[in-house]
């Protein structure tokens, strides 16, 4: 009944061909990302004394939420991670996540803008995003690893593949949902496409875009353990080790640290997602 078809060999051969012919090229990308982004950031984060990071977190938290209680909780929870002896790994995970998120924003927002402008591009991009979101991670993890060498860089790529789609979708959606009458009014005063984008569409799509960034960060954090399976150091390493040695306590401790990090970043980025005015109103009401 079924034809005897298989794409196993062509794909295997393609990966082998890619690795043996373009290995150097991909290795170059690895070195570039490592030396200009990750390593400096990691060094900086690990060089800054923890108390300074905690103070910075406090300031950032307060600037974002304008409220004392959440700010205090952020700092206290981060301090708790330090008490677990996971500070160094926390910084490594943070660096990895920051670079991944930065690259996601760099790729995702422009791509989201383009798809919002072109239905044809959108009809090509959306299925690709579906694939990115549903393809089991390990399928692309191993080839990515073979191309970019074991460690943080393949982890970043894997994270981007997984965490990029919501940002593109929500940027696209946010811009498409900008009120047509508002856009017509702006156009009636002679806005250029660029003025329309920067002055009208992006500001009005901001809640949606920020929700996208928030989603991206959350998904990047969810990838921490998977990333550690391809040798990216950080909190995921402890979770993995906990799993491998049936050390449930150790795994849970690192797991909790990931969750704390996620919650702090989530609350802060959500607070920034609201417009300044919205925040003022919200605080006024309390």
């Amino acid at each position: 009944m079924f034809l005897n078809l298989s794409i196993t060999d062509p794909i295997n051969n393609f990966v082998t061909w890619l690795v043996s012919h373009y290995g150097e090229f991909f290795h170059g990308i690895t070195l570039f990302l490592l030396h200009y982004f990750l390593i400096p950031l990691e060094l900086a984060l690990r060089w800054i004394p923890p108390w300074a990071v905690l103070i910075a977190l406090g300031l950032l938290g307060f600037h974002a939420t304008k409220r004392f209680l959440p700010t205090f909780l952020f700092v206290a929870c981060a301090y708790l991670i330090g008490c677990f002896g996971l500070w160094d790994k926390l910084m490594l995970t943070l660096a990895l996540m920051m670079v991944s998120t930065f690259l996601c924003v760099l790729i995702g927002i422009p791509l989201g803008i383009l798809t919002s402008k072109s239905n044809r591009l959108r009809s090509i991009v959306l299925p690709v995003l579906d694939v990115m979101q549903t393809m089991p991670g390990f399928v692309y993890l191993i080839p990515v690893l073979m191309l970019f060498n074991l460690g943080k860089v393949p982890a970043i790529f894997a994270t981007i593949i997984y965490a990029l789609p919501p940002l593109i979708r929500l940027t696209d959606l946010g811009i498409r949902q900008v009120d047509a009458d508002t856009k017509e009014a702006a156009a009636a005063f002679g806005t250029s496409p660029w003025q329309m984008l920067i002055g009208v569409e992006l500001p009005l799509a901001r809640p949606s875009i920020m929700a996208g960034i928030n989603q991206t960060i959350m998904m990047a954090l969810a990838m921490v353990v998977v990333a550690s399976m391809i040798g990216a150091r950080g909190l995921g390493e402890d979770v993995l080790e906990g799993i491998n040695t049936l050390n449930v306590g150790k795994g849970s401790q690192a797991g909790i640290a990931v969750v704390i990090l996620a919650i702090i970043i989530d609350r802060i980025s959500q607070a920034y997602g609201m417009e300044a005015r919205q925040r003022r109103l919200l605080n006024g009401k309390r």
């Binding site: 290995g23 690893l145 073979m146 399976m229």
Partner: peptide
């Protein structure tokens, strides 16, 4: 530490 045997094998293969 490669994190998993699959990762170890893949980087040796690469």
């Amino acid at each position: 530490r490669p994190g998993s045997q699959a990762a170890l094998d893949a980087s040796v293969a690469s």
